[in-house]
Computed example of a mutant assay.
Amino acid sequence: MSKLYQRLAFLILLVAIISGTVIYFTVDIHTLSSLNFFKPWALLLVLICLAVGMFFDGSRLMHLVRISGESINFMQAVQVVFGNYFLALLTPGAAGGAFAQVMFLRHAGVPIGKATVLVIVRTLLSIFFLVLCMPVVFMAESDHLPWVSPEMLLSISAGMFILAGVTLWLIRTNLLIVFLRPLLKNASHSIRRKVFALYKDVRGGVILLSSAPLSMIRVFGESALSLLALYSMVPVLFLGLGVPVDLGHVMGRMIFLNFLLYFAPTPGGSGIAEGTFVLLFASDLPSGTVGILAVAWRAFAEYLPFIVGMYFTIRTFGQDFLAHHIK
């Protein structure tokens, strides 16, 4: 069996085990009666949220490519987006997602150097939006963090912004290399090579971010709309169950959850995503439904795009190519 099919089989087994476990430990005698109130129109609205999120994700990529001096059409951008979901779920830490994006951009005619920078910028924009939102989320959740005062939250938030700003300035001016060299002095040659290659790509991304400020503001706005549309699937599922929705509360926790998932070591954050969802929303939902909604959210937000991405990837590159490149 090729590595590709081994990874697919492992992923399917992992998802089945995690989903089954989450549902098994969260259902109770009230589950079926609660689900009887679910409104089918919510599923259609969830699909609309997914479509809107993917539209703005593809649109921002098109505009990013244009800023770099290249050009792709919307269909090519959509293939990049879905291809990212496919290989990200097949690899620990979503490492394959970046490779998939570079592959599709290269196939669309974007030079590999620019493609690598564009992928980094796309990720940086998403993380930057979440970082900007985190202070608001923490302040809104201050009642649930009694051991942290509002003043401390403001200090932490200010520190995050200052650190981010200083880091970006150091990268853009290339001064960060002064600190990297002594830190990596005793590291092996391969580690130094990988770190400096990553630094070079990140610096290229930062320079691209600052090369067209007005256009980048538009791209950042599309990033925000894309993420908010995707996160909106959860409050829609809440409404489907007839649960009153505090939109700020639910969206804030989804922002926090998705920020954590950027650092999850498992493929696509599997297990961590469902478990954290249960912890965050168990008290907001009818008894016995939080596990089912966690699995439903993952099915729409990750597994459906994964299937579409698998179709685009295999149709574009073929099974032999993937089998050769997936290690």
Rank of each mutant, 00 (worst) to 15 (best):
H144S: 15
Y85F: 15
S149I: 05
T123D: 08
P150V: 03
L105G: 00
S155A: 15
L89A: 07
E151N: 14
W147Y: 13
I156C: 10
V137H: 07
F138G: 11
V136P: 02
F99C: 04
M134W: 04
M134F: 05
A115S: 11
F74K: 14
C133G: 15
A95T: 13
K114W: 01
G109T: 02
T123K: 13
I162G: 01
L132N: 12
A88P: 04
D143W: 10
L130Y: 10
L130W: 06
I162N: 00
A95C: 00
A115K: 04
G159V: 02
T91Q: 03
T91V: 09
L89S: 08
V110E: 03
N84W: 14
A108F: 02
F129T: 06
L89N: 14
L154R: 15
M160K: 07
V136E: 08
I156Q: 11
L154S: 14
V148T: 08
P135Q: 11
M160I: 15
G97Q: 02
K114F: 03
D143S: 14
L163W: 10
L124P: 06
G93V: 06
A108S: 13
L87N: 00
P92N: 02
F99A: 11
V102C: 00
E151H: 12
M152T: 15
H107C: 04
T123A: 15
E141H: 10
G113T: 06
M152W: 13
F138I: 06
P150T: 01
G97M: 07
R122D: 11
P146M: 00
M152H: 12
A94L: 06
V131H: 05
F128G: 08
F129A: 08
A77R: 13
V137Q: 07
A140R: 10
P146Y: 01
Q101F: 06
F161N: 05
F86H: 01
G159W: 11
A77L: 02
R122M: 09
L130E: 09
A88T: 04
F129K: 01
G96P: 06
F82A: 03
M139V: 09
F82V: 09
P92E: 04
V80Y: 10
G96Q: 03
N73E: 00
V110K: 02
V78C: 11
G113M: 03
A77C: 05
M160E: 08
F138R: 13
T123V: 15
K114S: 12
Y85Q: 11
V137N: 06
V117Q: 00
